[in-house]
Design a binder for these strands. Structure first.
Lengths: 338, 338
DNA sequence: CCAGCCGCGGTTAACGATAACAAATCGGGA
DNA sequence: TCCCGATTTGTTATCGTTAACCGCGGCTGG
C-alpha cells in the first residue's frame, strides 16, 4: 500500500532544501517571515519527499493543540448536529478543530469523555447541559481552559453559558394553549431524568399548568430518553386509552410528536380536530408533516455560532469574565394546534 | 476560574510520590509492572496535584496517537450517525478515539479534512465513498496507515472497503415494482453528482429500467444533495404536474420520500392507491409514516461495526491484505407500495 | 548453594517541532 | 560611503512522555 520506511521530518525537508529546520518550520506558518524564494524551495522539497506536517510534535512544543473539545448527548440528533455545524463553521477559519464526543445522555459517559478529552489539551471545552457528575464538574473547573455549557441555563454555571430556558419555552406554549381555551393538556416525555433538558421541559409544563390552576398530572412517560417516534406513537396510544378526554398534547420533541401524530392517523383521530399536538425543536419534519406541527425553535445553530464566537473572544482576550448568552426560543404555531 | 500556574507533569507527581518519572508513566498504563503499593501512592499523589495525563507528549514519544480519523458527508444524517456509532462502539474498548469530520458532500472539503487529519497522525482513516480528488487519493495512498472506504464499492479501492452497491440495491427495488406489473416508474434525486451514492442509485434505477425495456427518463432532479424533505415535496409536486400518469416513485432517500408522501397528502393523492412511493435508508420515519414507506436498509450500523473490527484486525496483524467486506442491503416492502 | 529468572524500579536519550535568542544580509538615507 | 533598522535565517534548548536498557534483590530448582 505504501513504503514502510518512516515518514520524513522537517529535518529531511531542510536538508533537501538546503536550509535549517527552523526555516522549514517558518515556511509552514502563514504569518512568519520567510522569503518567497526560500518558501517555494521548501514547499517543493516537502512535496517531493511527501512530507506531512506533524501536529503532535508542534502541539507539544508550542503548547497549542488547536483542538476544541465538544460533547453532545447524541450524535444522531438534528438539533445537536446543527449546534456542531455552527461551532465548526465559526472555528474553522481559525484552524481550530473539533474533538467531538457523544454521551448517550449518560453523565458517567460524559465524565469519561471529559477526562479523555482533557488529556488531549484542548483550547476550550464545550459541554451540553448544566448537570454533570461531581468529578466531571471538578475536572472542568480545574481544567484551566474556557468551559462553555450550552443548551441550558445552569443555576450555578462552571464558566460560560450559551443556552435558553427549556422550562420557560414550554411554559410559553402552555400559556398559548390556555389562552385558546384549552384546559385538559397532557405531556409526553421519557421515563427518567437522563435527558435533563427533557426533564426541564416537563418541569416547565407542570409549573405552567399549576400557575393556571389546571390539572398537571396528565404526564405520559415512555421509554428511556431520547424518546423516538415509535415511543411517541406508543405514548399517544396509551394516552387516548387512559385519558380519552385530553384536548392537547405537548411532546418533549418533534420526533415523539410526529410519532404521536402518526398514531392518531392510524386510529382515525383528527388532528387538530379531535386533539392538538405540539412538539419541540423545530425539526424539519415538524414543518413537513400533514398537518404541520406546532413547535418551538431553540435556534440550535445559533447556539453553535455564538459559542464559537465566544471561544474566539476569550482566546483573543476580548472576553475576560464568564459570559451568559441567552437565546430566546420562538414559538411556532402551525396547523396541528387549531 | 482556576489557578493560572501551569499544570503539573509526571515529574511533579514523581517527586511527590518519591519515585522516578518512569515509574509514574508505568503506573498510568494498565499492563506494566508496578507494585500495587507504588501505584496507589502514585495515583494518590497525582490526584492530590490534580495531575492530568498529557496525551500529546505520550503520542509524540510513543508514536501512537490512538486516533482514528473518520470523514462522513454530513453530520446531520441518521444513517451516517449510525455508522459512526458502530465505529465508536467497536473502537472504544481499545481506547481508540474518533476524530470526526464532515465534508458537506464536497470533495474539496474532504481533501482539506484528510490533510488536516493526517497531520494528527491517526492510526487509521475511514472515509465515506470511493470518489476523491486526485490529491486526496494520493495523500491516502501515501499515508502509511490503513485506509477504509465505506458505503460504496469502489472499482479501484485505495485499501480496504466496507460497503454495498447502491446501484444494485435500487435495481432490486425496480425489479420488485416491475414484477408487480408497474411500468411508469420515476426517480427523485438531487441535481448534481455531489452525492455520489445518490448518483449511483439513479444509475441503478436507469440501468434496471432499461434492462426491462422500460422508459427510464422519468427523472426529477431538485436541489443540491442531500435533498431534504422539503425538496422531496417540491419534486413530487413537479412530478404530478408534468408526468401525471406516473405509477410509482423511487426517492433517493427516505427523507425525500417522506416529503413526497406529504405532498401527496396535501394534494389528496392516495398512496399507494393512486401512486406508490419508496425511499432509501430505512430511517425511522419510514416505519412510522402513514402509510409506512417501502425502503432499503443498508445496515449503516453494521458498516461501522465491521469497519471497527477490520481496523482492530489490521492493527493486530490478523489482516494483512486489503479486505473487501460487502454488506447486503435489505428491501423492505411496506404499505406505501401496494 | 548458586545460576538464572522474575518482578520492580531507575537512567538516558529521543520523539519532531518551535520559542527564544542571535546573527547575517540587505536597502536606503545621511 | 557608511551606518542603522528591517528582514531573513540560524543555533540552542526544550515541550512531557516513554522506549530501550540496566540494576537490584529475592526466589526457585537442580
Amino acid at each position: 500500500m505504501s513504503s514502510a520506511r518512516k515518514s520524513p521530518t522537517m529535518a529531511d525537508v531542510a536538508r533537501l532544501a538546503g536550509v535549517s529546520p527552523m526555516t522549514v518550520s517558518r515556511a509552514f506558518k502563514t504569518d512568519s517571515s520567510v522569503s518567497d524564494a526560500t518558501r517555494d524551495a521548501i514547499l517543493k522539497a516537502a512535496d517531493d519527499l511527501g512530507y506531512v506536517f506533524d501536529s503532535t510534535a508542534s502541539s507539544l512544543r508550542s503548547q497549542k493543540t488547536d483542538f476544541i473539545a465538544v460533547t453532545i448527548p447524541s450524535i444522531n440528533n438534528a438539533n445537536f448536529a446543527e449546534t456542531v455545524r455552527g461551532l465548526s463553521e465559526g472555528l474553522k477559519p481559525r484552524g481550530l478543530q473539533i474533538l467531538l464526543g457523544y454521551t448517550d445522555y449518560d453523565m458517567a459517559e460524559e465524565e469519561r469523555l471529559i477526562e479523555q478529552f482533557l488529556r488531549r489539551r484542548p483550547e476550550a471545552i464545550v459541554v451540553t447541559g448544566g448537570r454533570h457528575t461531581p468529578r466531571a464538574r471538578r475536572m472542568l473547573v480545574n481544567a484551566g481552559i474556557p468551559v462553555i455549557e450550552t443548551w441550558d441555563l445552569p443555576a450555578d454555571p462552571i464558566g460560560h453559558v450559551v443556552g435558553f430556558s427549556n422550562a420557560d419555552a414550554v411554559r410559553g406554549m402552555v400559556d398559548h394553549f390556555v389562552s385558546r381555551g384549552l384546559t385538559r393538556i397532557a405531556f409526553i416525555g421519557g421515563d427518567t431524568s437522563r435527558d435533563t433538558r427533557g426533564a426541564d421541559r416537563r418541569v416547565g409544563f407542570v409549573a405552567a399548568m399549576r400557575a393556571h390552576g389546571l390539572d398537571a398530572t396528565r404526564l405520559i412517560a415512555v421509554g428511556a430518553p431520547p424518546i423516538s417516534m415509535r415511543e411517541g406513537a406508543e405514548a399517544m396510544g396509551r394516552l387516548v386509552e387512559t385519558l380519552p378526554d385530553t384536548q392537547a398534547v405537548i411532546c418533549v420533541s418533534d420526533l415523539s410528536a410526529f410519532g404521536a401524530l402518526s398514531e392518531c392517523q392510524r386510529r382515525g383521530l383528527e388532528v387538530p380536530g379531535r386533539l392538538w399536538i405540539a412538539g419541540f425543536g423545530d425539526y424539519e419534519i415538524a414543518g413537513i408533516a400533514v398537518p404541520a406541527l406546532t413547535t418551538i425553535n431553540p435556534f440550535p445553530r445559533e447556539i453553535g455560532t455564538r459559542t464559537a464566537r465566544l471561544i474566539l473572544d476569550v482566546m483573543d482576550d476580548r472576553q475576560a469574565t464568564p459570559a451568559r448568552i441567552v437565546i430566546s426560543p420562538e414559538l411556532l404555531i402551525r396547523q396541528s394546534t387549531g
